[in-house]
Structure formats: C-alpha cells, structure tokens
Design a protein around this nucleic acid. Structure first.
Lengths: 105, 105
DNA sequence: ATTATATTTGACACTAATTGTCAAGTGTAA
DNA sequence: TTACACTTGACAATTAGTGTCAAATATAAT
C-alpha cells in the first residue's frame, strides 16, 4: 500500500527527479534552505501550508501528500506511548461515531 | 464499546459519584479549580501527568483513562481536517509496519 | 432577600514547543 | 583550491499550551 516512505523522502525524491536545488524551493516557501534540508531528512516537521505549496511546486497529489503528513503528525503525538496503537483504534471509533452523528443531522 | 464519553465527562461523573469538590482534587493536582473545571467540560486538555494522578485519586483504570485521553489528543491533531480519517488509517498502517520491524529485530 | 459555597468565565501572565535565521562545517567535483 | 550544494548546531522569534486571579453566575439554606 506504499505508505512506508516518509514525507521527507517523498519530497527529496521528487525534488531530485526534477533537478531542483534546495534553494529553488526554499525561496518559494520563503524559508532558509536549512529548514527544507531538515524537513527532507525528517529532522523537522513542515507546516501544513508548506506541504500544500510543496505539492504545487513538485506536482505531487495534494491529498496524498497531506494524508502522509497528517499521519506523521498523529504518530508523533503518540511517540513513545505504550498505549499508542490502542489510542489510535479508539480514535477511529470516536471518529466513526462523530461522522455518524453528522450524517444523521 | 463505550468510548463515547469524553475524558472530561468521565472525570466529572466519577468525582461527583465520590462526592468530591473541584477544590479537593485541584489541590492534589496543584492547580487552580478553574483549570479542573475546564478540563471536566473539555474546554482545556489535561497534561498526561494530571491524567495519571486523576486516575489514582478517582480510582479509575490508568490504562483506560490514558487511552481515552490520547485518543482525544489524536483527534485534536486532525480537528477540522477533511482528510482526518484517511490520515488515521494511514497512521495505523505505518504503526503496524513499524511494530513488525521491531519484532523482527 | 441575604448569605454561603461551588462552579464558571475571561483577561492576562508564564512556560514550553515550534519555526525560523545565521554562520560555520562537510562533501564533492571542477 | 575554488566553487557550490547541503548539513549542522546555536540561538532568536513566534505561537501554542498551561496556569493564576478576580469577578460573575448558580444553587441552596436561612
């Protein structure tokens, strides 16, 4: 199902494929190259706005990239939590319950 | 499966069941009653440490309460995100993948 | 109605986490 | 040995999270 590449890896691969340099892209994002370098190596998280711009610049599917990105934020939230995967499952249940309520209304 | 009560509701119910006042518990947590009041009404998030203490004070199962709490933090992370439930599913896949790798090592 | 107590509300202070810059460092290839 | 791309780490700026306090509201007992 191909979700084993990190957002950073996806970004770096696509950038290199296009022959672009860090400074080309970081200029468009209006940040220092240092940050983009760190984002690509998963040393820093991007912001949502940066992700959306990156999808544009690199011709990546916005929804896919955003889902990757959000899933990493979720996992970061439960990093080194013993009960992380239980919490994820419960979160999904709650989400379903909420969505049900919405569709009823 | 009973995951439709918020952490705050659980805390308030149990506190009232025990006939305790906000100030009794907030004293033990070393915070103002105002915050505990807000936590019980889901207007503020507790910290993990507060959750663990609350489980102690109110004789609630630590793991259950922590899972409730963490699941709310996860949902908070994807609040008003269209793609929230996709992101949750992908997070679970990644989690499984990571856990697999661990058990192989 | 008045007092007493419990809880709630909102303005604001403090702290911690996140996001950023900058300058010096490393790697690689003319 | 110069040039260029990228990386690293110290630290500055910004934003989000956690808390206090005092005033407001709610409820119940005189």
């Amino acid at each position: 199902m191909e979700n084993n590449k990190s957002t950073g890896e996806i970004l770096r691969e696509k950038r290199e494929e296009k022959g672009l340099l860090l400074r080309h892209i970081s200029a468009e994002l209006d940040i220092d190259t240092a940050i983009l370098s760190k984002i690509e190596r998963s040393e820093r998280k991007a912001t949502k706005e940066q992700i959306l711009k990156l999808a544009d610049i690199l011709n990546l599917n916005k929804d896919n990239l955003l889902v990757q990105y959000l899933s990493e934020r979720i996992l970061y939230e439960i990093r080194d939590e013993e009960l992380g995967s239980k919490a994820l499952k419960v979160a999904e249940q709650k989400m379903k319950y909420i969505n049900n309520k919405k569709s009823q209304a």
